Computed example of a mutant assay.
Amino acid sequence: MAIGDSFTEGIGDPNAYYPNGFRGWADRMARQMGRADESWEYANLAIRSKFLDQIVEEQIQPALAMAPTHISFYAGGNDLLSLRTDLGGLMDRYEAALTRLTASGAEVLAFTAFDTRTTWLLEPLRRRVLAFNDAVRDIAAAHGATLLDHTLMREYEDPRLWARDRIHMSRQGHKRMAAFVLQELGIPHTLKITELDPWAPRGLRRAIEDEAKFVRGEVLPLVARRLRGVYDGDRVGPKWPEPFRPARGMKRVAKERALAAQQSA
């Protein structure tokens, strides 16, 4: 069972054969777990751009109603993007949510956010990320959650593991995350992780041009959407709202569900 926001929905890993047009680490992991145990079932309620309170209100109870053995929980990233976020209050609500999940008896997977260290324009965000991560580590330890410490995976300093927005992982980034989680759970997998060639440093002029392009194409539009209260998650639903067996083939299941939706429309 996976709940959360764009990190878990799979934004940055486009695939037209999957619901919502994205695959992502959780779906990749589910396919591998289905191969290890054909009876294993999976559901993914995560939706992009959702805030912590929305995830708690909309996803936790439906997730717990399915009586899962494992729950992946990533939330709070979108709250951190707001300068007005009360971090102390956010972490209190995060702890309440995690306590509710661990009390179910399921193994709960909690994640830190990666310390991106990109443009200086995002330095205020980076400081909040560091504080958020420290709190997540403490909360996970206090409540017996399994911590996946993303920020320790320094290979993610390679820009090729990130999408153009520098917030979401790329296809290769999602694949590595799936392998990392499977390894932490002790589940064998057949994911092929491509070794990346050394990243060639950019010259000063190229670096300045890239930063200007990033600000125009990603930062300013994101700020504008936030100011207007426009969120991509308002237009989509969960990818896999009902549990199914990934061993059946996830593309096959997606096709069957799309056909059933067309016939009932």
Rank of each mutant, 00 (worst) to 15 (best):
D5E: 07
S6A: 09
F7M: 12
D13A: 06
P14N: 10
A16I: 13
Y17R: 15
Y18A: 15
P19W: 06
G21N: 13
R23D: 02
D27I: 08
A36I: 03
E41M: 15
Y42Q: 04
Y42F: 15
A43H: 02
A43Y: 03
L45I: 06
A46D: 09
R48P: 07
R48W: 02
Q54A: 13
E57I: 08
I60G: 09
Q61W: 03
A63H: 05
A63W: 06
A63P: 10
A65E: 14
M66V: 07
M66S: 11
M66C: 09
A67Q: 15
A67P: 02
S72E: 12
F73V: 13
D79T: 04
S82P: 02
D86G: 01
D86P: 06
M91D: 05
Y94Q: 08
E95R: 15
L98Y: 06
L98S: 09
T99I: 13
R100D: 09
L101F: 10
T102V: 15
A106D: 08
T118K: 14
T118Q: 14
T119Y: 14
T119D: 07
L125N: 07
L125Q: 12
R126C: 01
R127A: 03
R128M: 02
V129G: 07
L130K: 05
F132I: 08
D138I: 04
A140C: 10
A141L: 09
G144I: 00
G144F: 00
L147F: 05
L147A: 04
D149S: 15
D149Q: 12
T151M: 01
L152F: 00
M153W: 07
M153L: 12
M153K: 00
E155Y: 04
E155I: 05
Y156Q: 00
R160L: 13
R160T: 01
R164L: 13
H168A: 00
S170A: 12
R171G: 00
G173K: 03
L182I: 05
Q183F: 08
E184V: 07
L185F: 01
L191F: 08
T194N: 12
P198C: 01
P198K: 03
A200C: 01
D210F: 02
K213H: 09
F214K: 04
V215D: 03
R216T: 11
G217E: 10
V219Y: 07
L220D: 01
L227H: 09
V230C: 00
V230F: 00
D232V: 02
D232Y: 08
V236P: 04
V236R: 11
P238E: 06
K239Q: 15
P243S: 05
P246E: 01
A247D: 06
M250V: 07
K251V: 15
K251C: 11
K251L: 14
A258E: 13
L259P: 00
S264Y: 00
